Amino acid sequence: MLDDKDFLNYIKAAEQSFTGWDFSYVTGTGRIQEQLLTWSYGSIVIPHVSKAQSVLDMGTGGGEFISKLAPFTNSICATEAYKPNVPIARKRLEPLGVKVIEIEEDNKLPFDTGQFDLIINRHEAYSPSEVRRLLTREGIFITQQVGGLDCVEINEQLGAPSNQEFAHWKLDWAVNELKQHDFNITLEKEEFPVQRFYDIGALVYYLNAIPWQVPDFDVDRYLGKLYKIHQMIQTKGYFDVKQHRFMIKAVAK
């Protein structure tokens, strides 16, 4: 292992900074590729953003998505809970007229009741009761979520425990929860697309960027298991895992 220069070079090259929600260091070079979903969050959201009077983008990250919809003729706010992302989002979005609010709790957001007629949410936690409070009657909530079974093959190969706290987080659970909070569901989909890693450095970069996948991840701690995955990639050409994605469009009663 310690004399495998390719393996060690991949590991060393993974020591790159990660900001906002930008995986281009590994996706832009094709080192990680994802199977396509049968829906596009962006294509679903865009017509609604253009029609809405007041929009909230929950969990904006570094503002990467919402910034691409400018210029805006309506009122748009964005929230972000991950502190390192907040100044990035503000720098990107505030010149476009988007107000960025740093939050700490999903169930207590600093907005008025009925302030928004559209709330969008991509891969961000949310409180159904709080989303309903913030929406006008017939307001629309659109979310794409990462399910609780996301990429569990990584944990299995590393011998790391999976996060059982989110094992229940699936489409049917989320749909039922929204129905219980005065929403009508108008669109729902769930899929398990393949995510493919073409080198071990890409996997290490991914795990460093998403610490909740393997909360105790450390290269030295998992070096032996990482090397086994590296050997698998060298033989097969890639390492596949299944993502877990679902999306919901809901209308407030």
Rank of each mutant, 00 (worst) to 15 (best):
M1F: 09
L2N: 13
D3T: 12
D4R: 02
F7G: 06
F7A: 09
N9K: 14
Y10A: 06
Y10L: 05
A14T: 08
S17V: 13
S17Q: 14
F23K: 04
S24E: 14
T29L: 12
R31C: 01
I32M: 13
Q33S: 14
L37D: 08
S40W: 05
S40L: 04
V49P: 00
V49Q: 01
S54R: 14
V55E: 00
M58C: 11
G62W: 04
F65D: 05
F65E: 08
I66K: 00
S67H: 00
K68C: 02
L69K: 00
P71W: 09
F72I: 03
T73F: 06
N74H: 09
I76P: 02
I76W: 05
I76T: 07
C77K: 15
A78H: 01
T79S: 10
T79V: 08
A81V: 13
P84Q: 06
N85L: 09
N85S: 12
V86I: 15
A89T: 02
R90V: 02
K91T: 15
L93R: 00
E94L: 06
E94H: 04
E94S: 10
K99V: 07
K99L: 10
E102A: 15
E102W: 09
E102F: 11
I103D: 02
E105P: 00
E105V: 05
D106N: 12
L109S: 04
P110H: 10
P110A: 10
F111P: 11
D112I: 01
T113V: 03
G114K: 12
Q115V: 01
Q115W: 03
I120C: 06
E130V: 11
R132G: 06
R133F: 06
L135N: 09
T136C: 03
E138T: 13
I140W: 07
I142R: 07
I142T: 09
V146C: 12
G147D: 12
G148A: 10
L149C: 08
D150M: 03
C151Y: 07
I154S: 10
I154D: 11
N155H: 09
E165G: 12
A167E: 14
H168I: 02
H168K: 13
K170G: 01
L171V: 08
A174D: 14
V175R: 13
H181V: 04
D182W: 01
T186P: 00
L187H: 14
L187F: 15
F192Q: 15
F192Y: 15
V194I: 15
Q195V: 13
R196P: 00
F197P: 06
F197R: 05
I200H: 05
I200R: 03
I200E: 03
G201E: 10
A202R: 03
V204K: 04
Y205V: 06
Y205C: 05
Y205N: 07
Y206I: 03
A209C: 02
I210R: 10
I210Y: 12
I210M: 11
Q213W: 02
P215M: 01
P215A: 02
D218L: 03
D220A: 13
R221E: 11
Y222R: 08
L223G: 00
L223Q: 13
K225S: 14
Y227I: 09
I229Y: 05
I229A: 05
Q231R: 13
M232G: 08
M232L: 15
Q234S: 14
Y238M: 09
F239E: 08
D240C: 07
M247H: 00
M247F: 04
K249N: 08
A250Y: 03
V251C: 11
A252L: 04
K253W: 03
K253V: 05
